[in-house]
Each structure stands twice: as C-alpha cells, then as structure tokens.
C-alpha cells in the first residue's frame, strides 16, 4: 500500500467523521468574470512595442517574467486546482502581458516577498514586480516605479476581543507585527515609535502571529487588512480608521528602464476605458461588499 494512498484514506476518514463543510475563502473571486475580463483586454500594436526597449525585450523572449505573490487573497491568489492566479494585481499583470504578447497567460511567475522585491529587480530575475508594492523614495533609489495604480493607507488590525487598542495611538509598548521590507516599519517608527515591533517575512505569517497571540496588533496596508476582513471569520477587526500618508502602489521595474513610460501609457489606457474599474469590482469590490469604485490615482 503506497504512502499516499494510506494518507488519502486516513484523510477521507477524518473528513467523513468530521462532517466536512466546504471552506470558502470569504467570497471567492468570480473566476469566469475575471478570466473573461483579462481575455478582452487591449493588445498593443507592433509599433508601440518596437519603440520601447523594455517591451521589445519581453516580446523577443515571448515571456514576461513577473515577480508577484500567490498568497494574497484579494490581490493575487493561486488556485492550485486550475493553476491560475487571480486578483487585482494578478489581473493587471495578466492584462499587461496580454498587452505586450497578445496572451495573458504568457508570463513566468516568481514568488517574491516584501523583503525580496527590490533584489529580484536588481538581479534581473524578473521584468517587473506587481505585488502591492508601495512607492517610497528609498525604494526609488534602487529601482523604478510605474504608476501609481492604486492608493491605500496604513491600518491597524487587532483581534475582535481587543478593546485596549482603539487606534495607532494605543500601540505604545504593545507587540506589533509588520512585514519586513514594507512601509510598515517606517510608518510605525513615525506614528507609534514606542511600539515593540516584530517583522515577519510574509503577510500570512504576521496574520498567524496575531491570531496566535504572539503580537497584539498588525500594522500594514489597509487594503491587505481588508483581505482578512473579507474572509469573514470575525476573528479580527480594524482598530481605528486608516492612517498615515497616502500609500501609492506602483509597478516595480528595473532602475532607469523605459518600461516606466510604456506601463504608464498602458495604465492610463485601461483607466480611461473602464477596465480598471471593472477589475477592481471583480477582485475587490464584490468580495468586500463595497460598491464605491475609488478613482484611480493620477499618474505623473
């Protein structure tokens, strides 16, 4: 009897015994609508691509090397059953791939975290990074940003039964999680300097730390926190309103690359023809119960 069949039998036994219920990831994304939206995105003409070095290189390789994540519920989540990644960031990336190569699935995925995002661009491991990537001056010294394509602020997440922390003002002396290499540490240094900061490599690890009581609060991008709330387990709540400076998300590109102009032109295009709004609705709006489509930020 092979190991895997023994394991499967055991698991099935547990499943039957425990009366399994289908686990929903909050409201799952409407896969059909998402795929359809990507499939009817614009395709650039040959001249536009030829005049841009970054796009031409991708066209020649016939693959766009993408740095992104597979584990962000609203923005970029891998469904390992059909092997497709869907979400707001994923949609933009696939539409951009389609824009250059005519087919939204011709990308090669590399998993990045908040602490590896710059390095993979510097190392030329990827052509671009689309991963809730906040534009900051410090990062702009190492790489270039296109966009912004979205805007957010910081938020504080606490457990539902936590009455002690009402906002970022109450974080003094409290164990607070944030993501290493994200804007979190800087924001905490500015707005809650007395917080005891613990830096985690991924969003999921920070969430688990909060759930397990290792930390009392989690400070990160407000939209990522919406992710958590959209899962509807009721375990966590936001403490206070979004705070801090406006946090623009950009698309990471190699330093000085002319891809910046190319991608900006693409972003303006999909904002103008309503595709951006449709993508937001499918990936974020419908799943968090918001109907107010935000206006996309202005691109310089």
């Amino acid at each position: 009897m092979s190991i895997s069949s023994v394991l499967k039998a055991t698991v099935l036994a547990f499943t039957v015994a425990a009366g399994a219920s289908v686990h929903a990831q909050g409201a799952p994304i409407n896969a059909a609508a998402f795929d359809a939206l990507v499939a009817q995105g614009p395709v650039a003409d040959a001249a536009t691509i030829a005049s841009n070095k970054w796009a031409s290189k991708i066209k020649q390789a016939d693959t766009l090397r993408l740095g992104a994540t597979q584990t962000s519920n609203l923005f970029s989540m891998l469904n390992e059953k059909d092997g497709k990644i869907r979400g707001f960031d994923a949609g933009l990336a696939q539409m951009l791939t389609r824009y250059i190569l005519g087919d939204g699935s011709k990308y090669k995925f590399t998993q990045v975290t908040s602490s590896t995002r710059e390095q993979v661009l510097i190392n030329d491991q990827v052509d671009m990074v689309l991963a809730t990537y906040s534009i900051t001056p410090a990062r702009a010294e190492k790489i270039s940003f296109a966009g912004p394509y979205y805007s957010s602020q910081a938020g504080v997440l606490v457990k539902s039964n936590n009455k002690a922390i009402q906002s970022y003002n109450d974080l003094a002396g409290k164990r607070t999680a944030t993501q290493a290499g994200s804007t979190g540490p800087a924001i905490l240094a500015q707005f809650a300097p007395k917080a005891v900061v613990q830096e985690f490599q991924t969003h999921q690890e920070a969430l688990d730390a909060l759930r397990q009581g290792r930390v009392e609060a989690y400070v990160t991008d407000y939209t990522l926190l919406l992710n958590v709330l959209s899962q509807g387990t009721g375990e966590a709540q936001l403490a206070g309103a979004p705070f801090g400076p406006q946090d623009p998300y950009g698309i990471g590109l190699p330093k000085g690359s002319d891809g910046v102009a190319f991608v900006n032109a693409f972003l303006k295009k999909i904002q103008a023809d309503g595709t951006w709004a449709k993508l937001w609705t499918v990936s974020i709006g419908q799943r968090t119960g918001s109907t107010n489509v935000p206006t996309p930020p202005a691109i310089q």
């Binding site: 394991l7 686990h23 990831q25 740095g67 584990t71 891998l78 469904n79 390992e80 990045v112």
Partner: peptide, 29 residues
C-alpha cells in the same frame, strides 16, 4: 530556496496554507 525566491516544497506549502488557512496539517504533511 524561498530566501532566493526559488520555488520548492516549502514555498508550495505556504500557498496551500494561504489558500486553505490550514497551518498545522500542511506543515505536518
């Protein structure tokens, strides 16, 4: 491998964990 963003078993495990929010069983397996 995950330190250099190379996809191997640990990384795929993290995807499963995020998808199904199942920490102990996945790590155990």
């Amino acid at each position: 491998g995950y330190v250099v963003t190379y996809g191997e078993l640990m990384q795929n495990a993290k995807v499963l964990i995020a998808n199904y929010r199942s920490l102990v069983p996945v790590y155990l397996v």
